[in-house]
Design a protein around this nucleic acid. Structure first.
Lengths: 299, 299
DNA sequence: GGAATAGTGTCTGTGAGACACTATACT
DNA sequence: AGTATAGTGTCTCACAGACACTATTCC
């Protein structure tokens, strides 16, 4: 195909003479929301340990936001995709190589980075609790797993000209052994006759860098949404697990208690029995399950 | 807060002396998948016209991909967000101001633009058929609405070491009055014990520029997924519509026939009766409905 | 035996799929 | 009267919520 453009050039000639324009370009970064599930020691040795949803944060060692906590991430380099950058960051930060990775959303608010024009393509990663020994290292001043709590705080509905605005405020609370960070994120849904839009906004923020409260909120909402109609939660499980453990993971993600019988029916197709059982638990042993390859993996 | 970094600078001092590094930066564009629904004239004047799902494409007037069809889009400028860029493009291309807009996915494959390093943040827009008079203009050499067909072509499952790979091939067929474009897009889902990943790939492509076949496939999948559990389809409807029209829109999006009674039950809460009826249709008139503001707008 | 969890059985209500039936304007 | 669509009633089946009951190990 040798079509000529208005300057009489073929595509090959055009590309050879092409010079990237002098338009200003943004920096592009990836930010990673890395979730895992840990166990909190129970008060009685006979009781089961409680599960916690945790997210990895890194304390910033330089300006801006010096001393604040941020999501792991970094600049996307030439000749790599945003996803490859995410994989690279993940490996640098946690040493984990093979995890569930999903693109979340691209944030581009002006001024989101006080230094310069930075667009961030965010990813969510799920690491199974078995791989958790690895703690982040070299690059960052300090890294820690923060327990996640994300609860609705306030709801408001306001009528406007030809529709309404619904605002939902969530409290995001992140706690590590030493520190507790709190932010309030407002989700604003504008519904008009013709259009609809959703917008996130940080109402208050104590201890998180950049717009990372928003990104974490976005990740939690995605995770909560997907838990109920995909097998995504299984990526947070070790190779063998009990159904009660799996149920606890569902509960800690959705922040809702579930009924045992119904839960077991629901996940029946996602898991496969093994012939192994837990031992020395102080009570009846529990059958161990493993992940089952689903026949109908639609998403 | 006057923390000093390792060079002894406060955050303000740091920002004042900060110069954007000489790292290479990508260009960032937005590409828009703009859907609407049109009516095809029926063979008999008494029959109802058939609905069609259509997408707006623009014929490229310069290299690369001269003469091929591309999604409307353009570079994101400094001091605007990707979303603002999308709104701007949409307005330039169609004149429409107030529509449903949703971020889809950010594409960053290396070499996706033969000129230079370009990352594209894609958006989906839904325009109601009432606003359709506006046809694209000035900027583009040529613009047209293409009827969309997106059907599964082939399915394959392959076992690997510790999991399996499922490949789903879709045929994307886009037809305007003058032209027909065809592409085959493969969706590859890799499921392993630890990780899971989904990847799109263009198998064949006749007439579409860049990786836009992928972006359109992504948009159709999103639209199909959301139709069944949100009121997203109502953004494709004019202010007043009949339930049969709404049903046809659902059918044309999902490519499935629905049962009338069940459909009406399902959308009952999304619409509100009016006292108006269709007229002179050659048969019994139909009640007109309008969109209803949902009480529980979760997404 | 008591504590704690594992695991199963079943009732009930809701809602989607399927199908049949009635209603009504326009030619 | 005939055509084409509008709109409703109801049966059935699947399934989730709710709750109760039995089972099993360890101390």
């Amino acid at each position: 195909m040798d079509l000529l453009n208005k300057d009489g050039l073929t595509e090959r000639e055009f590309l050879e003479q092409y010079r990237a324009g002098d338009y200003e370009r943004p920096s592009v970064t990836t930010d990673m929301v890395i979730f895992t599930v840990t166990e909190e020691e129970a008060d009685s040795y006979r009781k089961l340990p409680e599960k916690e949803l945790r997210v990895l944060l890194i304390r910033r060692g330089g300006h801006p936001f010096l001393g604040k906590w941020a999501l792991p991430g970094g600049f996307v380099r030439p000749n790599e995709t945003t996803e490859q950058a995410a994989v690279r960051e993940l490996s640098e930060e946690t040493g984990v190589e093979d995890v569930y990775l999903e693109q979340l959303y691209t944030f581009s608010d002006i001024g989101r980075d006080p230094r310069t024009w930075v667009i961030s393509c965010s990813y969510m990663a799920l690491i199974n609790s078995g791989n958790l020994e690895i703690k982040a290292g070299d690059d960052a001043a300090d890294a820690a797993w923060f327990k996640v709590s994300f609860r609705p705080l306030r709801e408001q509905k306001e009528l406007i000209e030809d529709g309404y605005i619904k605002t939902l405020e969530y409290e995001l609370r992140l706690s590590s052994e030493e520190e507790e960070l709190t932010a309030v994120v407002a989700k604003t849904m504008t519904t008009k006759t013709t259009s609809t839009g959703t917008d996130y906004e940080i109402v208050s923020n104590d201890g998180l860098a950049f717009d990372h409260a928003k990104i974490i909120a976005c990740a939690i909402e995605r995770l909560r949404g997907k838990v109920n109609y995909t097998d995504i939660a299984l990526h947070l499980m070790p190779k063998f697990f009990t159904l009660t453990e799996l149920q606890q993971v569902y509960e800690v993600i959705t922040d809702k208690e579930l009924l045992k019988a119904a839960f077991r029916r629901k996940v029946a197709d996602l898991v496969a029995e093994t012939d192994h059982y837990t031992e020395n638990a102080g009570h009846r042993p529990s059958r161990l399950y493993r992940r089952n390859w689903r026949i109908d993996d639609d998403l």
